[in-house]
Every structure is written in structure tokens, then in C-alpha cells.
């Protein structure tokens, strides 16, 4: 399987250890970074230098999660092939939303923003993901005896990430190459090129079984 990315498992492990240790350390040593539940009643709040997430923002996040959650999860899964990681990316995407509270022109802009954040977060995570190779989708399709689906997933999974993301957005989400270019911050010509090369690579892998609509 070709990946266009390498990985740094050591960095990942060290990073996670550091992350958890710092959280434990923060809990041990003081209240400064204490997390603050949204529902904290007045008068119970502790002094914090962390921005408070308003109920409105959380409500909006929940609404967006309900609308786009599964789509973003699939998109992240298409990068990471692992449900736990895809869920992490989905959560981080929503956290970015409540932290930045971006202003959108319309629903399409809103969705594109979420996809772009999820794409960037996913790509940054791919590198140290090599050993976490549990592919729940592959397992589920095998358990359901759907080899016809699992071999398509397997073929797409083998694509380099720059092709895979375009294939997913084009075929699954139905985005145009211009829209994909916006989401991935690429030139449209680059997206078209990646789409064509992705198709070529799929033809290479699937041979006569290839019949993606073009």
C-alpha cells in the first residue's frame, strides 16, 4: 500500500505521554487551567484565564455535529482508516469551531470550513498513525460478507492521500473540482490532476473491475 506520508511513531508516543502527563500535572498543581463545565452554576465558577464557551456556541456546535457529524467522520476515516482516530478528529474539528467561532456566509461555506479543518487535522495525524491499523470498516464489511464492497474500499485505501481525499470528496460528497480546490486550498488544476491520477491508480489496482463514473 502506498502512502504519501511517512510517520513518526516515537513523536506520537512521546507527544501523547507529554499530553497526558501535562494534564495530570495541571490537575495536581493548581486550578489555573481547570476545565470549566459549560453548565457551571453562577457562583461556583473558579477563576480561569480560559475563554468560556457560551451555551449558544455549544448549541451551534451540537447542531453542526448533528448535521455534518457522520460526513466528517467518514471523511476523517478515509484518511485515517481507524474509528478512534476519526472520532478524535471529529471532536477536534468541533473544538476548533467553538474556539474560533467563525462567521459563515452560508451553509455551503460552513460545511466547507468544517471539511477543511477536518482534512488538515487528519493529514497532520496520518504521519504517526502507522501502527494503529485497526480498520473497523474493513472488519465490518468482512463480517457482513461484503467482499464486493471491501475490495473497493481496499483499492481506495491504497491510494496516496492526495488522490484519496479528492476521490472521496468528488465521488462521495459530490463536490466539484472547484469546490474541492477551495476546501483543500489547492489549485483547481491540481485537484483535477489528482482526480485523474487517482482514477488511473484505481484502474491499475482494480484492472477490468474498474468502472468508476467519470
Amino acid at each position: 500500500m502506498y502512502r504519501t506520508e511517512l510517520y513518526c511513531e516515537q513523536g506520537y508516543v512521546a507527544g501523547r505521554i507529554l499530553f497526558y502527563l501535562l494534564q495530570v500535572f495541571a490537575a495536581v498543581t493548581g486550578k489555573k487551567n481547570q476545565e470549566r463545565p459549560l453548565s457551571a452554576a453562577a457562583g461556583q465558577s473558579e477563576k480561569s484565564d480560559v475563554a468560556h464557551i457560551t451555551p449558544e456556541t455549544a448549541e451551534k456546535a451540537e447542531q453542526l455535529l448533528g448535521i455534518y457529524g457522520s460526513q466528517l467522520l467518514r471523511f476523517s476515516y478515509s484518511y485515517l482508516h481507524n474509528m478512534a482516530d476519526a472520532e478524535d478528529i471529529l471532536q477536534e474539528t468541533m473544538i476548533r469551531f467553538v474556539q474560533t467561532q467563525p462567521v459563515f456566509e452560508n451553509a455551503a461555506h460552513e460545511k466547507a470550513w468544517l471539511f477543511r479543518v477536518a482534512a488538515n487535522l487528519s493529514k497532520n495525524r496520518i504521519d504517526y498513525n502507522r501502527l494503529r491499523d485497526t480498520d473497523e470498516l474493513e472488519e465490518e464489511l468482512a463480517a457482513k460478507d461484503r467482499q464486493d464492497l471491501s475490495y473497493v474500499w481496499e483499492a481506495v485505501r491504497q491510494l496516496p492521500v492526495r488522490y484519496r481525499e479528492v476521490i472521496h470528496l468528488f465521488y462521495y460528497e459530490g463536490y466539484s473540482t472547484a469546490e474541492i480546490a477551495q476546501i483543500l486550498a489547492e489549485k483547481e488544476a491540481t485537484v483535477r490532476s489528482h482526480l485523474n491520477r487517482g482514477r488511473s491508480r484505481l484502474k491499475d489496482i482494480l484492472k477490468e473491475a474498474y468502472d468508476f463514473e467519470e
Binding site: G66, Y77, I95, Q99, L141
Partner: peptide, 25 residues
Amino acid sequence: YEEAMDHVKMTDEMQARIMTGVRNA
């Protein structure tokens, strides 16, 4: 491909976990 990917779904439990994380961010 669409049918395969449709198997990846956000469950209610997952949604609840994510929102807990978001609120605690």
C-alpha cells in the same frame, strides 16, 4: 464506495462523547 462508506456512522454515544469533549475544551 458510497455503500461501503455509509457503514461509517456517528452513533448517539459518539455524539455525546464528542459534545462532552467540546464543552470541556
